[in-house]
Design a protein around this nucleic acid. Structure first.
Lengths: 154, 154
DNA sequence: TATTGTTATACTCTATAACTATA
DNA sequence: TATAGTTATAGAGTATAACAATA
């Protein structure tokens, strides 16, 4: 039987201000564990996590302006320039100047980029599914609810 | 009313293999949002997130061997050397050679490090509590449960 | 003037592997 | 031989701010 600590009788129903700390630690460690697992697989494909993020975001689309890509991936524009540069050097992505707007670029996967996406994205999903697949449908739903709530806080 | 998609009548009770994908995306974005929020505050104190992680782990302890610190923070040993170096240069931390074992070091906060810890750790908790405090006690418990389950997968 | 993106700084972190020195 | 930690390598990502070009 756990002793439910209360600093005074009148606090019994309250939540301590620091009660979230262990929860936050769980968030950090859970994410670290996940991202290490994920990143190892991504590196095998010769990509870094941000590069994979970009490829995944652009896969099966007709491309999108860099500022929208930055917004979706939460990579800041200065950083995104470098990430895009490296993907372009690898021949996986192209900057297209859209007709009628010469102030923005559209990032589009090249055929090689699409090919890589078609190969590694399903493989990565399969790899991750080996772990996520252990969650029941109910657990998945609860997890989704909790994470959305968490995200809404920030 | 959402249309509950089922590929065939016999799949109604099953979970699609890819059902976890949106959940995973939520995990990534929720964590990104959290860590950006957290990191901004940490940077104001002149620390990087890994440095803060180390300071937080060592605060209110009598120090610990580097390999244990590496294990707790999930920072690999090669990387940890650099992080520790920088904290040592800042005068926040010291490597101590324990009596009877000259093969390992013990990382200990200096008085300046303890002072910084005493100042910024509570302030950081207060800063984070502004957001986590919006969760009810029940939500906190559910969140903890879900995160532990997630972590157990990896 | 506001938006889009690049460039320039200056670090910090990262994985990986070879290496040294203990035990 | 196994363990603890450092060093060397080689990038890659990060924030930030100044900048150029276009709308």
């Amino acid at each position: 039987m756990k002793n439910s600590v209360s600093h005074s009788p009148t606090r019994t129903q309250e939540t301590a201000k620091e009660a979230f700390i262990p929860v936050m630690r769980e968030l950090v460690r859970a994410f670290q564990a996940f991202s290490h697992y994920s990143a190892e697989h991504i590196r095998n494909a010769g990509l870094t996590p941000p590069q994979f993020d970009v490829i995944s975001t652009l896969g099966n689309t007709e491309g999108m302006p860099l500022h929208k890509l930055a917004e979706k991936t939460l990579i800041t524009k200065g950083t995104l320039t470098g990430v895009i540069d490296r993907l372009e050097h690898k021949g996986l992505l192209q900057r297209i100047v859209p007709a009628g707007n010469r102030r923005s670029f559209i990032a589009v996967l090249t055929p090689a980029g699409e090919k890589l996406f078609d190969e590694i994205f399903p493989a990565h999903i399969e790899y991750l599914g080996q772990r996520f697949g252990r969650l029941s449908e109910t657990e998945l739903e609860t997890t989704a609810t909790v994470l959305k709530r968490l995200r809404s806080l920030f």
